[in-house]
Design a protein around this nucleic acid. Sequence first.
DNA 1: CTGAAAGCGCTTACAG
DNA 2: CTGAAAGCGCTTACAG
Lengths: 342, 342
Amino acid sequence: MAVTLQKIAEEAGVSRGTVDRALNNRGRIRPEVEERIKQIAKDMGYQPSRAGRALAMAKRKIKIGFIIQSARTPFMQLVKKGALEAKQEAESMGGSVRIEEIEDVNTAAVIELMEEMREDNVQGIALLPSEDMLLQQTIDRFSEEYGIPIVTFNGDVQGTKRKCFVGQNSRQSGAVAAGLMAEMVGGTGEVVIVSGHASNPALQDRIRGFQKEMEQTYPEVAIADIRHSYGDDWVAEKIVEEELQKHPRLKGIYITGHGEEGVCRAIEKAGRSGTLKLVGHDFLEANLEYLKRGEINFLIGQEAHVQGYEPVMILLKGLLDGKWPKTELQYTDIIIKNRYNI
Amino acid sequence: MAVTLQKIAEEAGVSRGTVDRALNNRGRIRPEVEERIKQIAKDMGYQPSRAGRALAMAKRKIKIGFIIQSARTPFMQLVKKGALEAKQEAESMGGSVRIEEIEDVNTAAVIELMEEMREDNVQGIALLPSEDMLLQQTIDRFSEEYGIPIVTFNGDVQGTKRKCFVGQNSRQSGAVAAGLMAEMVGGTGEVVIVSGHASNPALQDRIRGFQKEMEQTYPEVAIADIRHSYGDDWVAEKIVEEELQKHPRLKGIYITGHGEEGVCRAIEKAGRSGTLKLVGHDFLEANLEYLKRGEINFLIGQEAHVQGYEPVMILLKGLLDGKWPKTELQYTDIIIKNRYNI
DNA sequence: CTGAAAGCGCTTACAG
DNA sequence: CTGAAAGCGCTTACAG
């Protein structure tokens, strides 16, 4: 039924191999023949068969590497799950995926793994980068010199030769948080931001998105303070205690990430559960529990699963079909959850 | 690298065909041999190759039917887009998909198309059902007698032999709306529900979910009225004018579906834009525009795309691998959007 | 009940 | 620059 290479070959009066060379730009073919075949294929509405291609490629065995950092965190475990699912799918299509985890943030380890994978004939690598000159150079070297395409996920390194980035638009997610918070406090009053590490670029972007949106659209909502818990729940708790003292009329807290538990503890202790509006990030087990109980009013999600799954599939399709995403920044959807759509 | 039928055959000292018969329960094999081969396959960690299977199946050519009703509506156009994408993917895997559209709601037409597809050797059908005894019987007949699996999408017909349903949990989406509305009105005050056709089961479920959640969790939010626009914007506009008169302190309107334009028009005319809180459903072009402009505060989404894509893929996998979803009700995610994550 | 062979649509050496 | 052939992993008649 469907148009195959064979049919095109008959139509054009050449062999299958020649059609293949024409359609896949493999060279070693007379230009005018190539043009003619391409035209015929188009006219016949040729669609390459993924199945056939995958099978034939099974010989070449496409190998993809996947490198996670901070692998111990619950969020990264979700990312890993997505990668594992992609691995399964890739394998049933004749590919193979090698997933490597680094416990903390360790650029040297990432680079080492990249080199190891290269020796292992890996043909494409998805990785969670960190801000580091050497890593950036390595990414460029792999992309340019070795022809090993790189896809970043969760975090990006702008200005490198990586094929694309899969992850959240942090700034926009901050704006989403602002919108939610503003609606809940009735468009007026004081709110506070509790963030994690001051050096985390994603968290900084969320803060900026939040701030900007408040200024522009809800000028009567005042951001009374921006504090950093450095991911420590105890610190977060103390911060909130202080802020509640300093701003007795505080209406809401925006938690950009990490320290949710400490924040909620302080609020409970102060007897402000339910009256103080909370917006947080990421669908971690503990966060969802707070959401269910009504301590946190909204959570903004990152699609961890997609961040693991997509990079592998992007590499697979790219390596198999030569088709890469048209746009470098593959932003994942920003998901809003309240207690009813968990 | 990967374990193939061939390797298992060598290991077991039989032919590929025999392994195939054992692993796919095709019969015509001695039970003890079947057992032994299954064990060996398990031990070797055999994973069937999707690519190989798909290719071999290309001869048999899996044909899937897809029947949309109310095809003209923008929502269904999105569903159709999803189905078209699945069609492409199915075709590149050796299947074929036949998409049929019915303009309005017409059970007889659905049944006619089903019969036509059967004669056309379609091996599985996805359809948007309507509440109708005859259709239900037809679904059962196809499933049981003809062995043609049916998947429903968007709407379900409980109690039939359809393989599964892909769509929204309407009740839950009503509860989500209630949560959003309650947060915006500060947990107290009067709100009104404007719905479409009173006979639309999905809309009724949304109303019920909304009501129940308000009663249970936000008893101080009163549902002052429930009105039906029957999908007519002019009617919706009149309704809102009336309600604004009747309830001068009205704080919000929940639009379960259809008539958004009329509602917004009435609110604008009354000069209540921005102060009256609106929650609506579905990411239609016009709705998103209202959301952007701040007339509507939240939209709850249905993943139209998934509703077109998934049923086809479910049928394809089922027909190809014999693997069906474990759970009958394949609820799509309930998506919340404010103006910042459009 | 079991095996040998053909073929699904593609890619890839290998000849020429 | 072009063609003929082998092979990817599976299914499916066809013999036996």
